[in-house]
Amino acid sequence: MFFDTECSAILLLEDGTYFEGISFGAVGTISGEVVFNTGMTGYQEVITDPSYYGQLITFTYPEIGNTGVNPEDNESLHPSVKGLITRQISNVSSNWRNKIDFDQWLKNENVVGIRGIDTRVLVRHLRESGTLNGIISSDSSLTITELFSDLKKSPNMSGLNLVDKVTTKDSFKVISSCPVAFDKRIKNIKTNPYKIIAIDFGIKKSILDRLVAHGCEVTVLPASASISDVLDLSPEGVFLSNGPGDPAAVDSGIKLAKELIKYEKLPVFGICLGHQILGLALGGKTFKLSYGHRGLNHPCGLNGKVEITSQNHGFALNSESLNSERIKITRFNLNDQTVAAISVIDKPFFGVQYHPEASPGPHDADHHFNHFVTLIEERRRFVD
């Protein structure tokens, strides 16, 4: 037994650091990249966001589970994270929308958790040491040596293509959205919707909601879609979605983006991984951030204009690799000056590193969806 009788779970990091805590959710042993999210709300959206696939997520807010779980707030059908790390969870679910207890939901979905550790110490360690792989175990029969041996087998996120783990296997169409999407942010409902192709690298439901709310009829295609798959559907615009893993390893997505750029006729909009793939297709390079950007209050802007954004990424575009004669950096992350948004000069291609759909987070950046449909509207007038 690796811990005393008062503890029931352990978090072991690849540098040998370990934390003893209490098990919650499913009982088991799981390894992955340990990351942290600084948001105070939205734990359900975070846990079900496909961009977190293969990771162990640490919540810096000291308590989660307060509002239980409801199906409307899921970003995908099931949790995407491998494991959860938190200071404590609430034993009471206080929300009229709650359908199932948080801990029971995690058990049903086989998500392993550890609570009762000092997440402040853990996050400080990750900020100083950089992102580390880790293993959570609530199996008391395993020794530290055995866990460390298993942890060494966990792959590094750099060079890892995880898109195939989360992308849809079959295409599907989204022509209406849940009522939440039609909120006060929508200006009008289109009777002649914009026909959009969304390439699914791990797309969030709320992104589809926002596209529909801005008047789009969306056909979602797998990440392996070819240029002919796209053009055969006669779209008016192409959306490149968020997703997990190393963007430089998503060969099929980069190839498609390059062909869309050569085609030149369709507006292209990328978010997060899609933004990075667009940048790579334009000749840029990406690099792994020391500990990533994951939270709800990251300031991004340029020339005195700022918007507060929701973010979730571990890689970023290298600003020096972008051809300034062709590509304009339209926003920087004001915390560390990494590239936060780009556009192609005189072409209808643009991407943002953050999440304008929020969910969770502020709505400052929702205007990017409006910019996308404005480009499509301009193309309609030109074609007509």
Rank of each mutant, 00 (worst) to 15 (best):
Met1Glu: 12
Met1Arg: 14
Glu6Cys: 12
Leu13Thr: 00
Leu13Val: 01
Glu14His: 07
Gly16Val: 11
Gly16Lys: 12
Tyr18Asp: 10
Gly21Gln: 03
Val27Ser: 14
Gly28His: 10
Phe36Gly: 03
Thr38Val: 08
Met40Ile: 06
Thr41Val: 06
Tyr43Cys: 03
Thr48Cys: 05
Ser51Thr: 09
Gly54Trp: 10
Thr58Gln: 00
Thr60Phe: 13
Thr60Pro: 09
Pro62Phe: 06
Ile64Arg: 02
Gly65Ala: 09
Asn66Thr: 09
Thr67Asn: 09
Gly68Ala: 09
Pro71Val: 01
Glu72Val: 06
Leu77Gln: 13
Lys82Met: 14
Gln88Ser: 15
Gln88Ile: 10
Asn91Ala: 15
Val92Ile: 15
Ser94Leu: 15
Asn95Gln: 11
Ile100Leu: 14
Phe102Asp: 08
Val111Asp: 10
Val112Gln: 11
Ile114Pro: 09
Gly116Asp: 07
Leu122Ser: 01
Arg124Ser: 02
His125Gly: 00
Glu128Thr: 15
Thr131Lys: 04
Gly134Tyr: 01
Ile135Phe: 07
Ile136His: 07
Ser137Lys: 11
Asp139Thr: 10
Ser141Thr: 13
Thr145Glu: 15
Leu147Ala: 12
Leu151Phe: 11
Lys153His: 15
Ser154Leu: 08
Ser158Ala: 13
Val163Tyr: 01
Lys165Met: 08
Val166Pro: 05
Val166Cys: 04
Thr167Gly: 04
Asp170Trp: 09
Val174Ile: 09
Val174Asn: 05
Val174Pro: 06
Pro179Asn: 09
Ala181Ile: 02
Phe182Trp: 11
Lys184Ser: 13
Arg185Asn: 13
Ile186Val: 15
Lys195Glu: 12
Ala198Leu: 01
Ile199His: 01
Ile199Ala: 01
Phe201Glu: 01
Gly215His: 02
Glu217Gln: 15
Pro222Leu: 03
Ala225Gln: 00
Ser228Tyr: 07
Val230Lys: 01
Leu233Trp: 04
Leu233Cys: 06
Ser234Tyr: 14
Gly237Thr: 02
Phe239Gln: 01
Phe239Pro: 02
Phe239Tyr: 03
Ser241Tyr: 00
Ser241Gly: 02
Asn242Ala: 08
Pro247Ala: 08
Ala248Ser: 14
Val250Met: 06
Lys255Trp: 04
Leu260Glu: 00
Lys265Gln: 11
Lys265Ser: 12
Pro267Leu: 13
Gly270Gln: 05
Ile271Asn: 04
Ile271Gln: 03
Ile271Gly: 05
Cys272Val: 06
Leu273Ala: 07
Leu278Ala: 07
Ala281Pro: 04
Ala281Met: 04
Leu282Cys: 07
Thr286Val: 06
Arg294Pro: 06
Pro299Thr: 07
Cys300Pro: 07
Asn303Trp: 05
Asn303Glu: 11
Gly304Ile: 10
Gly304Val: 08
Ile308Trp: 08
Gln311Lys: 14
Gly314Ala: 09
Gly314Trp: 06
Phe315Ala: 04
Ser319Met: 10
Ser321Val: 05
Ile327Arg: 04
Ile327Cys: 05
Ile329His: 03
Leu334Trp: 10
Gln337Glu: 15
Ala340Glu: 10
Ala341Tyr: 06
Ala341Gly: 09
Ala341Asp: 08
Ile342Pro: 05
Ser343Ile: 07
Val344Ile: 06
Ile345Tyr: 06
Asp346Lys: 12
Phe350Lys: 05
Pro356Met: 00
Glu357Phe: 00
Gly361Ala: 00
His363Met: 07
Asp364Asn: 01
Phe369Arg: 02
Val373Thr: 13
Ile376Gly: 08
Arg379His: 11
Arg381Pro: 10
Val383Thr: 14
Asp384Gly: 10
